Amino acid sequence: MDVLQLLFATLIFPGFVFLVALSFLTQYLIRKLSARMQRRMGPKYVGPVGILQPVYDFLKLLQAKELLKTRYSMVRAAEISLLLGLSSLIASTLLLPLNIYNIGSPYDFLIFFYMASIWPILMIIFASLSMPGPYTSVGVSRLLSILTVSEPAFFTGLLVPVALASFNTKAPLMISIASARVHELWVNPLTLPIMILVTISLIVAVQSKLMLPPFNIPEAEQEIIAGYETEFSGPLLALAILFHDMDTVVSALAIVYLVLGGPAPFSHSSIEGALLLILKYLLVIVVATYVKNVFGRYRIDQALVALLKYGLMPAIVAGILGTIYLYF
């Protein structure tokens, strides 16, 4: 019975099928919201109100478009790297309270962050370097420059509320414990400033982590022709787009549970809890889309300064204030 539950959680919910469906839906929402903000039509024709357009685009790239390669391309290595990255993102969701098959242990937040953030980044870099082109190395170097600041900011922004919420419990840095108690930090006057700083940090860190404007320098089409994804095409490009959308979903779910408290103070099984969870997820997506459409692309030096000033520094200050709150 445990094996069947684990297989269901991995393959159906909250694993592969659920994440793929939510990734397509999230891509549709972002494209539709972006079109509305830019006074365009956006996806409209495929499916009701265009909701199946991301699925159609994925299948078109997967089946109809040719995979272009050069004599130095290692297509199989790129495919394996992207599939390993997707697998890591899927496995990371098993540690979230969304999983009906309860998996968790003290310090599982560190495992979650490794699978949800560090490993996928390594895989997208390996996939890019497996399809070398004249602009690939430039795009990868810019990507690494951004990630050296955005990843510490993202990690610290998630770590602070998890540490505060799970302090003085038998399960430090445990996701399920932290997500159930983190909403209390928002109503505590002493921890409210910390949560505001964490939220500011994560808004900036997520934009850069997902390569969304204004931090999409590594794929600046007008400058380096899509950067680290220059040589992706056909089925490989379909996997890369799905990889990005799934990364968006997992990052949003991490913020929803570890910063906004998921369905708390309600339970997942209640109607109120389910609606609250959906609203918080939509809030994260709407904010990311709004920032994406309001700002223009930064230069690499501007991006690094902005990340340090509005991403990493608020997270560090929040960490210092959180330490003072816990021990003094």
Rank of each mutant, 00 (worst) to 15 (best):
S233V: 05
A264Q: 04
V182Q: 02
S92R: 04
L83N: 14
I121P: 10
Q53N: 06
V198S: 01
F266K: 05
L143D: 07
S141R: 15
F113M: 01
T323F: 02
L129E: 11
L89R: 01
Y327A: 06
Y257G: 02
Y28L: 03
F266A: 04
Q53V: 07
L307V: 07
F167K: 09
I217C: 08
L304R: 02
L237T: 07
T230V: 12
L82E: 13
G311F: 03
A226T: 13
I90S: 07
S176Q: 06
F58N: 02
I121C: 09
L62R: 08
A35D: 00
I225W: 09
A252R: 07
S128G: 12
R299F: 14
R71Y: 10
T148Y: 11
Q222P: 07
T156Y: 03
P134H: 08
L110Y: 03
T199D: 12
A240C: 15
E272R: 05
L7K: 07
L185C: 04
S128C: 15
T148W: 15
L258N: 04
A252Y: 10
M313Y: 08
V286S: 11
A238D: 10
L61K: 13
G261S: 05
G85F: 00
N102G: 12
A171M: 06
G273E: 04
I103G: 02
L11Y: 12
Y310S: 05
A91T: 10
Q63K: 14
L61M: 14
G311Y: 04
L258K: 02
V284A: 06
P120E: 08
L96P: 08
L52T: 14
P132W: 06
F243Y: 15
Y290C: 00
T289V: 06
A220W: 09
I121D: 15
P43C: 03
E223S: 03
G234I: 11
V20I: 09
F232Y: 09
V138D: 11
Y228L: 07
V294S: 10
I177D: 01
S179P: 00
P54G: 05
L197G: 00
P218V: 07
I121M: 13
Y56M: 15
M1N: 15
E229K: 13
F18Y: 08
V294F: 13
A238M: 06
P193Q: 03
S34G: 05
G273I: 10
A240D: 11
L173V: 09
F113E: 00
A318Y: 01
L68E: 14
I125C: 12
F154N: 08
T93F: 01
Y281W: 10
T136G: 08
P193N: 03
L62S: 07
